[in-house]
């Protein structure tokens, strides 16, 4: 029989990192807290961490997202 779990505390919120909108999606599954950071437009996952606490997961996801976003260059199109 396949063991199943239920996700709890699912939530999303949007923050800004270095001028880029970032969506944080957090939830608990089993005894782990998951936090994923995506880049809103287009919605691609930048980072996802699964940690014993919600704070740890979010902190790591934000840190990795910040690192990746710092590499994106804006060009002058005028």
């Amino acid at each position: 029989m396949e063991a199943t779990m239920k996700t709890e505390q699912f939530q999303e919120r949007q923050i800004e990192i270095d001028g880029w909108p970032v969506r944080l999606t957090s939830y608990k599954v089993g005894d782990k807290y998951v936090c994923q950071a995506d880049n809103v437009s287009p919605g691609a996952c930048l980072a996802r961490f699964s940690e014993p606490t919600a704070e740890q997961a979010e902190s790591q996801a934000i840190s990795k997202a910040r690192h990746l976003l710092s590499k994106t260059k804006r060009r002058d199109i005028s």
């Binding site: 437009s41 691609a44 930048l46 997202a65 990746l68 590499k71 994106t72 260059k73 804006r74």
Partner: peptide, 19 residues
């Protein structure tokens, strides 16, 4: 169907992804 900043040419790839 890309994001507006990709469409205009302001960025070459979605934020945080390789160009």
């Amino acid at each position: 169907v890309r994001g507006p900043q990709e469409f205009t040419g302001e960025i070459l790839a979605p934020p945080g992804l390789p160009e």
